[in-house]
Structure formats: structure tokens, C-alpha cells
Nucleic acid binder design. Structure first.
Lengths: 263, 263
DNA sequence: GGGAATTCTCAGGAGATTCACAGAAAGGCG
DNA sequence: CGCCTTTCTGTGAATCTCCTGAGAATTCCC
């Protein structure tokens, strides 16, 4: 097994390092050395989920391919050389670990994000996250998958990209590694859901996000509750983020919410 | 401890000595004289273990090759010239001692970390470690293997790198060689597991580590228990580390734990 | 062999978090 | 200005996460 260290796995920031604008759309944040978008291979036999994921990841500006079984995944890995793999541990033709093992032999340095059922965590497989890989349990939110994938890509990439774990909008700063948030230098404690909502807003500054959009992105895909939770959580966020200060979270009546630097 | 004052095996710290961020990833902490990453040869016939080890070591930023038997190991040693060898003493084709002997003829100054079953320790292995080598018994934790390997590489390398055996986060200091820990100058006694957990946290300061991550890294690969032990040991650590003082170990509900200087 | 130290399971309880509901407040429009 | 719609937020209940004491099992050490 001839393992060259990092060959294809070096990633870099785009030339126009306007990195604060993590705006999904057509501006990928991470690029391959040749300037082409990052490649992500999605492996899931449930086609509806695979479609949902592909769509969301494409929206990040990444190049996506999707496979429904282990054999296809390996074939694709071999020929397409993705920069990251999103792998459901339950596949029809082979055990997730088997796929992982062979994948590793093919792409030693490519990070893998596992999708696993909630209860399967208990009979977890030792070392699932050992090599810097990560996992997400179903049902997940798209924001979570995207965030973890970005984390993996960031850490697998060039050292220069390492500092990029922070989002900033005005004097509001969010650190994805430590899960810390500051406004004007002062630390603010957020709950898990508040944190994800804020991260989504901050990754789309100055852009109106509808309640539906937010619900689809930040809440799990199987959430069955009222769309009103978004209002509730916006309210929570305002209390913590905007309290006293110039408001950064704005309501666009009939359209949605947006975040922008005070003023 | 007969530390051969290395010849070819001189290692050095990376130019950018941002060593406080022992953050696993692509930033190797130890480099060869030519700036390329350290090379480690993994020799184990159990492929799943070899894969797990390769994964974890590669994540340290090292260049890894893996062989399944003594013959292959010797071949690789000869042509690839690794900086360290991770050697299972139970190999299909030849006795671990034999492999070691020939390895030594090939690479006189390269340190070897033995993997051995628990009960086989006594007799012969102990003697082997006299030359600066070390050993780890199965089942092991990844943190332990990585730590020992780092220790070997460090000691085999330049003296300048010697000071690197200490981790510090705020006024908390941990010595990897002596296994001593101080908070604000005062020594704190930790059990083996507590020590490994703290080391893992301190090697990833200001980063949220999930319970699964911790379990995968700090506990043996064959541990089958509840993820709840992590909570328990965090609790123990807090009692010893944070007692009275400003807490350094923080809980991120729903995400994991992180350590950071008081504040 | 016996005592001490260590590791780990189990379960109760404290507290944090999520969410539905409903009335209050605010915005838009004729 | 009055009415209707949309958004905001207080309340409280259900749930979930995490902490920790007690004690069993195991290992270590003398």
C-alpha cells in the first residue's frame, strides 16, 4: 500500500479572500489547487435522502456525485478522486466499515463524514472518528451536515485555511471550533439550536432567509412542528445578541429575516 | 535510558512553532530535516487494526506505510527508510524478535514501538525496550500509541525538540514524559485514564470534542461500555483540576467538552 | 493473600433546552 | 383611524442532557 502523504487533499481558499461572505450560491469557499470546486461523493441507498443532500451540497458550490452502494462508491472514488466522502454506514451491498476500509486504501487522506441512525450509535464502531473523520446521526439538519463537512475539509486542507473557523458579521463573531460567540468582544452563551440558527444567518449575511428556508436548513428534515419555532428562536437570539445594542437581526415582513452589521 | 545521539534520525520542529495548537490535522509537529513529514512504518497482520492505526497516525500529519508481515516490513524499511516503526510482535511469517534483529541491522537508530498482547509482556519485551524503544499492550487507546510514538520520535530527534514534552493551557501544565500535572504550580495526582483524557483535551485546546470522539481516542478500541464513562471522568478531572479555581473544562451541551484557559 | 486504588455500571436528580399555545404588539392597508 | 395579518414573546410542560453518589468488579501493589 503505497501511501503518499497529502496529494490531492490540499485545499486552499479562493483568491478573492472575501471569506466573511460564506454565502452559498456560486461562490465556493474552498477550492482545489487547480481552482475547481471541491468534490464530494455522497453514498446513500435511500435516494430521497441522497437527493436532498446532493441538492444542499451543490448549493454550497461543491461538485457532487452520488452513489447508492459500496461498489459504486469505490468505483467513483477510484476514478473521480473526491475531496471528501459522505457515507451512510448502512448500505445494501456491504458493511459501512468494509467500504471505509477499501475507501481508505484508495484515498488515504480524504476525510469521511458518516451518516448513522441514532440508536446505532450505541453499538458504535471504535475509531469511527479516530482519524479526524466525523459522523452525523439521523435525522440530521442540513446545516449540520454542511458545517461538519466544511470542518473536515478545512482541517484536511492547507494549514492556511485552518484559521478559517470563524465567521464575523460586524462586531459579531462566531467560532465553529469552540462553539463560542462574541458580540463586541463579550462572550455570549447560546444553546445548540440557537447556535445553528445564528451560524446559518451569519453564513448568509445581508440576505433575506424565509422561515421555511430556515426550517429546512436548521431543523432536522423530519421535524414536524410549527413553523413558529423559527420566530421563537429568532426572539431568543435577539435577546442575547441584540440586547441593548444596535440590532443586527432584522425582520422583513412577509419575507423572512436577515442579519447585517449594525447601522 | 540509552538514547543514541541520533545520526540520520534528527528531527526538528516546524518553522512555524505554533506548537500550542497540537491540533491534529495536516500540520505535522515533527518534521524531517528536509521538511517532509515524519515517516512511520506500521507492521501488523490484523488489517483492521493496521487500518485504524494508519488512520490515526496519518491524522497526526505523519507519512504512513503499512505492511502485514516481517518480510514486507524489512523490504519497506530498506527502501523507504522510516523514522519510526510500529511493530506487532506477533507476525505470521516470523518471530517479532527476528524482525527486530534484522530491522536493527537495517535501521540502527530508528526507534521501534512494539504492540504486544497483555500477558506476553514480561519475558522478552521488557528487555527490548532498553535501547530506547517502547511498547504498548493490546488493547490500547489511540492516544496512548500516538503519545508513545511522539515520545520516541522526540527523543530520537534533536535535543532542541526535547522541551516539547510539556503541554500547557493557561496555568495548567502536563508533562508527557513524567506524567505529572500541575495547576498553578501545584502538583495534581491523576490516574492513568484521567491523565489520558486530560492530555487529549489539552492537545486540542479551545476545540469542542464530542463524547464519541473522546471515547474513540482515549479508550481502548475494544471498549464496549457506555459513553457515559466520559461524563464520569470529566467529573473526576474537574474535581481535581478545577476544584475551587476558575473552571477550565467546559461543557457544550449537546456538543461535547472543551478545555480553555480560565475566563 | 489482602488491602488500596482504579475502572466502570447504574440510577436518581438537577437543570437546561425545546416547543406548543395564546395573547400582545406591530405593521400594512383601505 | 380601524381592521386584518403577521410577528413577537410570556408561560409552562415535556423532554433531554449532564452530573454525581453508591457500589460492584477488576487490577495493582506490598
Amino acid at each position: 500500500m503505497t501511501v503518499t502523504s497529502s496529494s490531492s487533499a490540499s485545499l486552499r481558499l479562493p483568491a478573492s479572500a472575501s471569506s466573511s461572505r460564506g454565502a452559498p450560491g456560486k461562490q465556493p469557499e474552498l477550492l482545489r489547487p487547480d481552482g475547481s470546486p471541491v468534490r464530494v461523493l455522497v453514498v446513500d441507498d435511500e435516494s430521497s435522502l441522497a437527493d436532498l443532500l446532493s441538492l444542499a451540497l451543490r448549493y454550497e458550490g461543491w461538485d457532487i456525485r452520488s452513489e447508492g452502494d459500496g461498489a459504486g462508491a469505490l468505483r467513483c472514488a477510484r476514478s473521480w478522486r473526491p475531496d471528501a466522502v459522505l457515507l451512510d454506514v448502512m448500505l445494501p451491498d456491504m458493511d459501512g466499515l468494509t467500504v471505509l476500509g477499501r475507501l481508505r486504501r484508495e484515498l488515504p487522506d480524504v476525510p469521511v463524514l458518516f451518516l448513522t441512525a441514532k440508536d446505532a450509535v450505541e453499538d458504535r464502531i471504535a475509531g469511527l472518528t479516530a482519524g479526524g473523520d466525523d459522523y452525523v446521526t439521523k435525522p440530521f439538519s442540513l446545516e449540520e451536515v454542511v458545517a461538519r463537512l466544511r470542518g473536515l475539509l478545512r482541517r484536511a486542507g492547507a494549514a492556511a485555511a485552518r484559521s478559517e473557523s470563524r465567521l464575523a458579521v460586524g462586531d459579531l463573531v462566531l467560532d465553529e471550533d469552540s462553539h463560542e460567540v462574541w458580540r463586541d468582544g463579550q462572550e455570549i452563551h447560546l444553546t445548540a439550536t440557537e447556535f445553528e440558527l445564528l451560524r446559518y444567518l451569519m453564513r448568509n449575511p445581508r440576505r433575506v432567509l424565509s422561515k421555511t428556508q430556515i426550517l429546512d436548513r436548521v431543523w432536522s428534515y423530519d421535524f414536524g412542528g410549527q413553523a413558529n419555532v423559527v420566530e421563537l428562536y429568532i426572539s431568543y437570539l435577539r435577546r442575547k445578541i441584540d440586547a441593548g445594542r444596535a440590532p443586527m437581526i432584522h425582520t422583513r415582513r412577509g419575507a423572512g429575516y436577515l442579519i447585517k452589521p449594525g447601522g
